[in-house]
Nucleic acid binder design. Sequence first.
DNA 1: CATCAAAATGAGTGATTACTCACTTTTTAT
DNA 2: ATAAAAAGTGAGTAATCACTCATTTTGATG
Lengths: 221, 221
Amino acid sequence: MKDPLEQWLEELLEKHEGERMTDKQSRILRAAVEVFAEKGYSGAATSEIAQRAGVAEGTIFRHYRTKKDLLYSIVAPFVARLIEPFVLRDLYPLIDNPHPTFEGFIRGILDNRIAFAEKNIKVIRILLQEVPFHPELREQFLSKVADRVLRKITNVVNHYREQGHIVEVPPLTAVRLVGSTLFGYLIVRFLFAPTGWDDSLEREATVQYILHGLSSRIEAK
Amino acid sequence: MKDPLEQWLEELLEKHEGERMTDKQSRILRAAVEVFAEKGYSGAATSEIAQRAGVAEGTIFRHYRTKKDLLYSIVAPFVARLIEPFVLRDLYPLIDNPHPTFEGFIRGILDNRIAFAEKNIKVIRILLQEVPFHPELREQFLSKVADRVLRKITNVVNHYREQGHIVEVPPLTAVRLVGSTLFGYLIVRFLFAPTGWDDSLEREATVQYILHGLSSRIEAK
DNA sequence: CATCAAAATGAGTGATTACTCACTTTTTAT
DNA sequence: ATAAAAAGTGAGTAATCACTCATTTTGATG
């Protein structure tokens, strides 16, 4: 089985700037992802990145003008990827030709985001750690993810609400509730990684929690 | 109205080590909380902490042997506080003489944790940012919070499950689901702080989401 | 093989880092 | 009032930081 990070980096290397990267340049990126994830941006030394990549320190600065440029070259395309396949590949078909049930929609979202997180834990970790310290990063993240994704999802939520599948709450609130449940699942599974985690059980419980939490209420005594 | 951080620091200053702190020492702590929250541990310079506190840099190292000691002196008592009032003040009465309804219990937890977060945003921010980089911190956090708190909460969950108030899921799963919903509420409210946030509406929606997500299912159709 | 531009190098730069220590000031005890 | 202890100081230190640059290596082209 192929290392998912490997796969992601390859795509990044091929597509980035049109031209292909040199061997050393890709090793710099790989090492930078490692060290940033381990020590955070401030705690990561360019000397260590160079050492782990097996290149001279000067080589880093031949390709990236500053250390911050190096960070952005890793995180920026990831932010784009965070939404692009999500919105375009999964959401558009769901909007244009939505899944008949809210349950089917939720299961689809869960599967998709779990697969995405599985592939990109390290870069996600970097993003979560550095966003608080880099206003430009936060701005880019919010303007892309928040504005574009939320608007799209809001449409979908409205659709199911109109169909009477889910309860009457502001769509943004619904997104927050589902989002935090999904996020909690991902954090516990990938960052805490508890022993004896029965994934199919946990996943099913999570789906049921979301469905019952949002589905139209049946008044009972 | 009094600054909540002020209040927390005062308690910390009085109780810490039994003896009272000097004026300069408390100003060092205050400044350290500021700078750590703004720049993270690695990004924070002791020179800047000294400057903001209005003391000489040497004074910091008279009271704290290393920069890491300074961080721990802020975070460690907070971790204790994270559980102490939570477990003892709120949970024990709920276990010994539990709230008759699951709904009442959830509302109580929500109120309590919201108030706590409101008081301690800055230190929470430091804790969230630094836990990934300090294994000792993570260990302490997990051994105290995870083990002790989770065990206590598990009992409460079991209680409501036996009473038939909530659905049949593993107690730890229930804690994860409620926890992530509560956590999501806190993050969105305090860290994102969206404009036009209708708190009473959001809070009620969150409670309803949790209650319906976990309450015993009524088979329909 | 010769040419040349891009890639790579690593010693060197000044700035900044956490931390020390000899010394002065303030507080406490008698 | 005086001595002892504790608190505070700031110049100084070695280490490390991100980054530069003159020089060498590499790889493609004629």
